Amino acid sequence: MNLQFALLFIGIVIVAVVALTTYDMARLRGPRSRDDSSSDNSPHVEPSFRPDILSAAREGGGEKMLRTDADVILEEKPRQEVLRKEIRQLEEVATMPLDLASRRPGPPKAEPGREYLSDEKIDFVIRLPGEGPIQRNMALGVYKQHEYKLNKARHLYGQHHRTAHWSELQLDSQSTQYGDLALAIQLVDPRGPIDESEINVFIQLGLQLADALNRPTKLPRTVEEGLARAKELHLFCDMYDVIAGLHVVSGTEDVFPGRAVEMAAQRAGLELGAMNLFHMKNEVAPGSRHLFSLANLDASCAFDPTAWEAFKTTGLSLFMSVPCTYQPGEVFNKMVASARSMAETLGGRLQDQNNRPLTDKGIAVIHHQIEEIEEKMRAFGIPPGSSTALKLFNEAATL
């Protein structure tokens, strides 16, 4: 009888998870109500708004922008392919880990039950195996003495001595003990690929750590293989570090007053936040905390919530980072819907990044390019919006 109750309980939990997942996916695809409330506990990463991205979003015409005049053949996908994509998206949402730790105020803490591991796709790793136990402060002390010499993101991971659970030493309590250790450095970030000099400094750190802890060192990759992978990842980032954007502009003689802009943005579901930009919050993990953002088309005048009465502009720019966005095609559709809502509220019209009227065909061309980018990134093994993509394209990612 106890077994029957246990199986019944498990079945109820599975049904509940599937129902909640389906509801969340529907919220992402459908229009956002202006009464929707945002949750401070949603598990996302704060995006890094680099000046080059903001400049490209406002000015257009750069290599990072998707264009409406691209040479694209628009074809309707077979229904079977569409269904496969939807099922894959549901499976991903149902199985993805929740990054609750990144939302908590104060010093970073490990998320209970989550394993923290090096990312073999983008990291150069030095393993320090051993039976242990190694005290956390002893290993971390040696690491801290030397890791400041490195520029790329680096981490020291340990496998708990008794449970075999992997975590990051900086997030653990002082009493934690470890068996195996792993030292990792990211091969590429938005500043470019790692060079041979920094890899050698990193290897020296690994050797110093090994000497202090009386551990051997093992390198899954040679230095040459690491540099080759860094070059490959750098080319990948150069190819797919792109922005999808569009403008909402006024008539020839008209301007948008500040209060009207604020009202239109809020009505479209955006909130004023980081860097005094409006953002559409992401409420469905994974990916960045913001789905897309809104800036003043005039770069010389930022939004100022204390001076809405004096603010005026002839145009607004909505933009999104394609590689940092989970399901970027769906998010682009949502961004277009918000732009149309704002244009209707303000009495404006839509333009592309070349300041030409944005037509339905132009929107379809951009959407097609986004879907192609998503498929190619998946084929490379780094899907848009994944933790790996965030680390590669977003300096503020701390997963």
Rank of each mutant, 00 (worst) to 15 (best):
146 H>R: 09
132 G>H: 11
372 E>C: 07
362 G>P: 04
302 A>E: 13
215 R>W: 10
30 G>P: 05
335 M>Y: 02
353 Q>Y: 05
217 T>D: 01
189 D>K: 00
225 E>F: 00
320 M>G: 02
85 K>F: 12
378 R>L: 09
210 A>C: 03
22 T>R: 13
125 V>W: 01
40 D>H: 12
365 V>R: 01
233 L>Y: 02
152 K>I: 01
93 V>G: 02
168 E>G: 07
191 R>F: 10
268 A>Y: 01
161 H>W: 14
300 S>N: 12
96 M>I: 13
129 P>T: 05
267 R>H: 09
242 V>D: 01
120 E>W: 05
215 R>H: 09
168 E>N: 08
181 L>I: 03
239 M>C: 07
201 V>L: 11
393 F>G: 00
92 E>C: 04
231 K>S: 10
347 G>C: 05
108 P>A: 13
172 D>Y: 07
4 Q>M: 12
206 G>D: 06
241 D>M: 00
37 S>G: 09
387 S>M: 09
101 A>I: 09
224 E>K: 09
101 A>T: 08
84 R>V: 13
249 V>W: 02
186 Q>A: 01
66 L>V: 08
365 V>Q: 02
398 T>E: 15
345 T>A: 06
336 V>C: 00
271 E>P: 06
81 E>H: 15
6 A>Y: 15
263 M>S: 08
104 R>W: 11
5 F>Y: 13
17 V>T: 10
239 M>Q: 13
374 E>G: 03
173 S>Q: 15
396 A>R: 09
54 L>Y: 10
263 M>Y: 09
